[in-house]
Design a protein around this nucleic acid. Structure first.
Lengths: 212, 212
DNA sequence: AAACAACTTTGATGTAGATCAAATTATGAC
DNA sequence: GTCATAATTTGATCTACATCAAAGTTGTTT
C-alpha cells in the first residue's frame, strides 16, 4: 500500500533536505548516508539535535512543519511518501500509528541522554560517549573491544553535535589516540582499540542504559 | 472507561515518584504541583531532562521502565492508571494512541529546544530562556510584558535544569533584577517586568518557534 | 523569640574549554 | 604529479563559568 506513493530522492553532501519552518511536502525514510538535524541561534551558533542513519524516519504525522534544519552530512538517498496520502494511511492503520509512536519515544530517549551529555559532561566524556555510541551502532551485538568505524563527520560537525569547538574535538581525539584508546590517520575511519576504556571515560552510570 | 481504573496518589515535595529502571506499575497524569525528570552521572552530577506541570503525562505505552528519576518538586497529586488495563485500552482505541503520539512529539520538540540551550547558550541566555518559558506557560495568550510567576524551584534545581551551578543562577537572576527586567524579594514569586527584554536576551532566532 | 536548618547572596580564585592565530596535512581537480 | 582548497593540528592566550568560602536571609520548630 505504501508502495504506490513512494518515490526516491537523492541529496549530495552538504545539501539541505528540509528547511526549518518550511511546509513539508513529504515524509521520508533514510535509505543510505547520514543526515543531521540542527538548530541555530540568531548569531549563527548551531547545535545538532539529532543524527539520521539508514532506516531512520523524518517527518511527523499531524505536523506540517519542523523546527530544525535537516542537512545531508554525506550523500543521501531518501525514500519519500507524499504527506497527504501517508497521513490518510496512518489514520486508517492503528498498527502504524503505534509503530510511529515507538519511534518518537526512542528519539525522546536519545534526546534526553544527549541533554545529560550537553549539560553536564566534560569535553573528554563527550568525545568518549560519542565514539562509544558510534561503535554500538556499528556493531550492536558484537562484544569485541576493537573495531573500525567509518567517520563521515568533520571535526566541526562533531563539535556542533557535542556542544564543543572543533579545536577541542581535535585535542580530545588526539589525547585518546596518544593513550592508545583509538587510532586514525585517514580522515575516513577511526579505529577503536579499547572500547571498555571509552566506556569508562564516558562518565555514565554503569548500570544506566546499556550498562557494562 | 478510564474512570474505572483510576486512582489518586499524593507525594510531598522532594519525594521520588519513580526510580530509574524500576518497573512502572502505573502510568499517570499530573493533577497539581510540579515534578522533574532527571538523570545522574556516576559521580553525582545531575541534569534535569524534563519538567512536568499539571496535565502532563508520565509513562510510556509499550515500555515498562524509564531511564530517569521522577521527583516531586512541590507537593504533587497524580491521577494514576494501572498499566495493564491502560495498555489494553490504548490498543483498542486508535484515537488515544494518536493523542499519545502527539504528546511524545511535543516532548521531543521541547527536548530539542533544550539541547540547543544546553549546548550553545550562555548563562545569561539560559536564564532568560527559562524565565520566558515560565512566563509563556503561565499566560499562553496574554501579550502583557509584565506578570507575576509562581516560583517553586530552588536555585539549585534551576541550575540542574539549565546545566549551570546554583551560584551562577543566583548571579544572573540578580543581574536581571538590577537591570529592572525582573523583580523578586519573596522566594515564592518572580515578577517579570519586561518580557520583550527577556526575549531579546534569550539568543533565540526571532522567527523560530513562537517568534516575536 | 531564640535557635535551627535550608536557601541565597556575594566575593575571591581557579580552570576547562573558547578564541585567536599559524602551521601542517589531506584530498580532489586539472 | 602539482595546485588549490578545505580540514586538521598545535600553540598561546583569554574568559565565562565553576569552585571554594563566607556571610546574610528566610522560614520553621519549639
Amino acid at each position: 500500500m505504501l508502495e504506490n506513493i513512494k518515490t526516491y530522492r537523492s541529496f549530495s553532501a552538504g545539501e539541505v533536505i528540509f528547511w526549518r519552518g518550511e511546509p513539508l511536502g513529504y515524509v521520508a525514510s533514510l535509505v543510505t548516508g547520514v543526515a543531521a538535524l540542527s538548530k541555530t541561534l540568531e548569531d549563527g551558533r548551531t547545535q545538532m539535535v539529532g543524527l539520521l542513519l539508514p532506516s531512520d524516519f523524518i517527518g511527523r504525522p499531524g505536523r506540517d512543519k519542523i523546527d530544525f534544519d535537516v542537512t545531508a552530512t554525506t550523500d543521501v538517498t531518501l525514500c519519500c511518501f507524499d504527506r497527504k496520502p501517508f497521513e490518510t494511511l496512518v489514520r486508517e492503520t492503528p498498527h502504524l500509528t503505534q509503530r510511529l509512536m515507538e519511534l518518537a519515544l526512542d528519539e525522546l530517549d536519545v534526546a534526553r541522554d544527549w541533554m545529560l551529555l550537553l549539560g553536564r559532561k566534560t569535553a573528554r566524556e563527550k568525545i568518549a560517549t560519542f565514539l562509544e555510541m558510534l561503535a554500538r551502532r556499528a556493531e550492536p551485538d558484537e562484544k569485541r573491544s576493537s573495531m573500525i568505524l567509518p567517520m563521515s563527520m568533520t571535526r566541526d560537525q562533531i563539535a556542533n553535535f557535542l556542544g564543543l569547538t572543533l579545536e577541542t574535538v581535535s585535542r580530545q581525539l588526539n589525547a585518546f589516540k596518544k593513550q592508545g584508546v583509538i587510532e586514525f590517520s585517514d580522515r575516513k575511519y577511526i579505529a577503536v582499540k579499547d572500547l571498555p576504556a571509552l566506556h569508562a571515560a564516558s562518565g555514565d552510570d554503569s548500570d544506566q542504559g546499556f550498562g557494562s
